[in-house]
Design a protein around this nucleic acid. Structure first.
Lengths: 212, 212, 212, 212
DNA sequence: CATGAATGAGAGTTCATTCAT
DNA sequence: CATGAATGAACTCTCATTCAT
């Protein structure tokens, strides 16, 4: 390693990385492992059955380690919610989904979300359960509300063009989201699988319900 | 209550009747009061926040009294679920709902359930949350499944007559139930009220989604 | 038991005490047992070694029971302090201690406190340790300060009559209290006993130090 | 600190010297920094509130570093006690304090200790608290006892010459030490300052209490 | 039957200590 | 030698359940 004095207080060090002690950063994979473990356990046993000791064991670490990454059980749970919601928003605002016609754009979004839920039922269930778990913190709730606002515009455009029923946007969203969630839940609960055709029929129901 | 010592062993107590526990016969209303209290508290604080002491307080009795009516917290919660589900089944199999055409019969049933949820959101929410609370006992779950089977016939008839989409009955039910629940939840959360017209539009969405 | 209706809502009940279910009151002896146990353990192991489980065991009850009487460990410790300080104040403001001359009154007070400390070294030690334990709550501290103020007047009178050195009252009190505590601590630590004569010589030191 | 990648393996770091850990010989000041930090924190938060992580932070180093200088928290605390006591003994056995008359020698010693406590209240408080903290190790306690013995001779000489009250030496020491500590504690607690005159009056109290 | 103080197993969290970097 | 993330035993506190009154 070479040290060059620039001034009395400022130095330049040139060195190979491995010979320089990098401050050991908090392991970003650990936070994700904790997320995953906690989410799975919530689905298995509910929020009331979630124990930090179990999360630690499932994530392959000591209990104390959880508290390096999250201040408390509450914070952990709220953070999982927030991160999952952000993931969903990123998914639904993906520019790739935008297409020429409203119908195809709607279909793209519906399938994106439907497939996401089908692939990550634990995430969908977690988010659903969370809202009535008693763990939610208002600030987190509001933050998520804010993030979702841009998505409303899409449906408003559909209404303006006379393609979507003239109803409160929140009702339209509830209709679609509620149906998707319930279908996925039923699917998981009964161990069913949905082939492409079945998915398309589910989509048709969704479209039929909201189309003008 | 005022206590006046007449002698070392004899006291006079002056009190309002309700603050003096008169020995009385087993109160059949108590079980219902416990139900109501527990359900409200689950909605407010989630299953993880439900404490027997709070249930007792909310129901206006001592903790010990709860255990006269229910063997345990688990049993209490499962019983609430079972009773609520029975109430819903009774509602949906009410002979008054049967009418000439499939459409009107469907409409009657949809409105019956929708209005029930709107009037008793705590019951609907309790039932929804319960399934993933970790409290559910398999025997109770199976019992409820059994009770609901007769209702499927109604939709099967609709399909036979070409009025309802040719889809797995469970998917159809999930579509309808999920949408209703989500709309009600949104309504409650945002403090909205639904007038007759709005309800009808919600029904239209439901009908559009399942009709052939 | 005889019940006499005074009005529709007010009743008079006359009964032998044992035939009337008295609401089971929190046992006042338990609170004292907890005090005693906690105090002893603090002296033995210091505040840092005080464990609620040990307090419970020493007091002959379950851990949970402690929390019926005290909201937290902090509150328990602060309450012990407050109660002990109140006891000391009651002792020092006992009208029996007042006598004709300032000297005899001072002597009475000094001996009252010295003997109290000698008989209850654990209380004295607890109070001494407490102030720097990190457990003290400001409100409790202020409350005690307030209660002690009346005692200052006694020394002020001594100064007015030219019997006591003209020094800040707080310094005079510190001189006396510090000396007493340290002598008692030494006595306890070394397992010494103080006979009447020795006590009197200790008093003479105290008096010599403050007298004009 | 700024890191600039020159290649995949070579980096340039620009930083203020103090934020870059230069490999250096074992720093003899570190043990003292740890002492100071621990002592301050004990005074602020008591022994029960002393955390090794806080000591490290206060001393400007990592937790692990503490364990290079001290085997354990216990050892650290006991070492602080021992070192402080040694410092006090060195102070009181300073040959400069010896003078012609017993009175002036006594006065010199009293002022030396009083001023030491006034200047280092944290040390005095630490030592006071330590004895009842539950951390003390018997070997350390005995070692300190042994070191203090020579000081007794001084008072014994005073008694032989009829200048000091004929009382157990330990009682005399307790009287003096207790008074000094309590006056200093009061001073610190109330934010008072003691001028030369006031100090002298404190000394007079001390002298009056022990003089024959 | 009704009460609520008492119980104690079990949960969340902390923190002295270790060790790979 | 210095670091600080990781560890897990041990602590405080909670709460479902019991039982004497």
């Amino acid at each position: 390693m070479i040290a060059i004095a620039v001034s009395e207080e400022i130095f330049i060090f040139v060195c190979k990385t491995e010979s320089f002690i990098m401050p050991k950063a908090k392991d970003p994979d650990k936070a994700k492992a904790i997320h995953r473990a906690a989410m799975m356990l919530v689905i298995e046993t509910g929020f009331s059955g979630l124990k930090m000791a179990d999360v630690a064991k499932e994530a392959g670490m000591a209990t104390g380690t959880l508290y390096i990454y999250y201040k408390s059980k509450d914070e952990l749970i709220n953070d999982i919610y927030l991160e999952t919601k952000k993931e969903i928003i990123a998914l639904l605002t993906n520019p790739n989904l935008v297409t020429e016609t409203f119908y195809t754009a709607y279909r793209n979004r519906w399938f994106a979300y439907f497939n996401y839920c089908l692939k990550n039922p634990e995430k969908m269930l977690f988010v659903e359960q969370f809202l009535y778990s008693g763990y939610i913190e208002e600030s987190i709730y509001n933050q998520v509300e804010e993030l979702f606002k841009p998505l409303n515009q899409f449906l408003l455009d559909g209404q303006k063009n006379g393609l979507v029923k003239q109803l409160d946007i929140e009702i339209l969203k509830a209709q679609m989201e509620g149906a998707i969630h319930e279908i996925i839940k039923m699917t998981v609960k009964r161990g069913k699988t949905l082939d492409a055709e079945l998915k398309h029929e589910c989509f048709n129901m969704a479209w039929d319900s909201v189309k003008q």
